[in-house]
C-alpha cells in the first residue's frame, strides 16, 4: 500500500500522485483541506484518508471506496454515480448533491442541502446515511434514492427547516423524534413497523458495522418514512394555451 504524506505536496502534486498510483490501496495522511480528491475516478481503487478532506471529495466518481478518518468540507459525493464513501466525522453542505448511485455514510452531522436532487434509475440507487443531524433543505428536489438520518448523540433538531421541499421521488427516513414543523408540506410522514424496515435493514447494519454502533441501540427508536404526497405535485402550476 502506498502512503502519501499530504504535507509534502501541493494540491496539484497530490492529485497527480493519487491519480497515477497503480496500487489498489492508497493511504493519505495529514490531509488538510485538499480539494477534488477522487474526482471522476472510475477505478475500484481504495483510498484511506486521514485528516480533513476539502471540497468535492469523490465528485463525479464512479467506483472508488473512500474511507475518511476526519471531517470533510462541502460537496462530498457530488454527482457520484458509483462507489462508497465513509466519513468518520462530519460533512459540510450539499453532501451527495445529485448522487445517482453508490453509498455515502457520515458518522456525525451533515450541513445544509444534504442529498438534494438525488436520483435513482434501475439498479442505480444512491444511499446516504447520516449518524447525527442535518441542516435545512435536506433532500430538496429529491428524485430518487434513500436518505437516512439517525440522530445519534444529537444536540440539535434532527433535520433543519424545509426538509423534503420539492421531493418528487425517493424516501427520507428519520429515526426517533423529529421537528414536524421542519417538514415540507408536500411530504407525507409514515411511521414504520419496527419489524418491517425493508431497505433500511441493510443500511443500518452497514452503518453499525462501519462506526462500531450496536444495531440494537440504533433500532431502539421508531423510524418515520417521508415520501411525496402527490404523484404530480406541479401538475396544476402551469397553463398552456394557444397564444
Amino acid at each position: 500500500m502506498t502512503v502519501l504524506n499530504a504535507d509534502q505536496y501541493s494540491q496539484e502534486e497530490l492529485l497527480q500522485r493519487l491519480n497515477s498510483a497503480d496500487e489498489r490501496e492508497i493511504e493519505v495522511i495529514n490531509l488538510c483541506g485538499q480539494r477534488y480528491i477522487g474526482c471522476g475516478w472510475q477505478q475500484k481503487k481504495s483510498l484511506i484518508l486521514k485528516g480533513t478532506a476539502g471540497n468535492n471529495l469523490g465528485a463525479f466518481a464512479a467506483g472508488p471506496e473512500i474511507m475518511l478518518y476526519g471531517n470533510c468540507q462541502e460537496g462530498v459525493a457530488n454527482t457520484m454515480s458509483e462507489g462508497r464513501i465513509i466519513v468518520h466525522g462530519r460533512a459540510g453542505d450539499i453532501a451527495g448533491y445529485a448522487m445517482r448511485g453508490g453509498e455515502l455514510f457520515i458518522r456525525d452531522d451533515a450541513g445544509y442541502r444534504l442529498g438534494i436532487h438525488m436520483k435513482a434509475y434501475q439498479d442505480k440507487k444512491p444511499l446516504i446515511v447520516v449518524g447525527g443531524s442535518t441542516g435545512a433543505f435536506t433532500g430538496e428536489y429529491m428524485a430518487g434514492g434513500t436518505i437516512v438520518i439517525l440522530g445519534l448523540n444529537r444536540d440539535q433538531e434532527l433535520v433543519g427547516k424545509y426538509c423534503g421541499t420539492g421531493l418528487y421521488a425517493g424516501s427520507i427516513y428519520l429515526r426517533g423524534d423529529y421537528p414536524l414543523k421542519n417538514l415540507a408540506p408536500s411530504v407525507e410522514a409514515q411511521v414504520m413497523e419496527p419489524d418491517r424496515l425493508g431497505e433500511l435493514e441493510q443500511a443500518l447494519e452497514d452503518f453499525a458495522l462501519y462506526f462500531g454502533y450496536s444495531l440494537n441501540f440504533i433500532r431502539q427508536e421508531p423510524f418515520t418514512r417521508l415520501t411525496r404526497k402527490s404523484d404530480r405535485p406541479f401538475a396544476s402550476l402551469y397553463t398552456g394555451f394557444v397564444s
Partner: peptide, 17 residues
C-alpha cells in the same frame, strides 16, 4: 437522463454547489 420513466424532471434555478 437516468431517472424513472414518466416522472417530472426538474432542474432547479441555481446549481446549489
Amino acid at each position: 437522463r437516468m431517472i424513472p420513466a414518466w416522472s417530472d424532471a426538474i432542474s432547479p434555478a441555481p446549481h446549489h454547489d
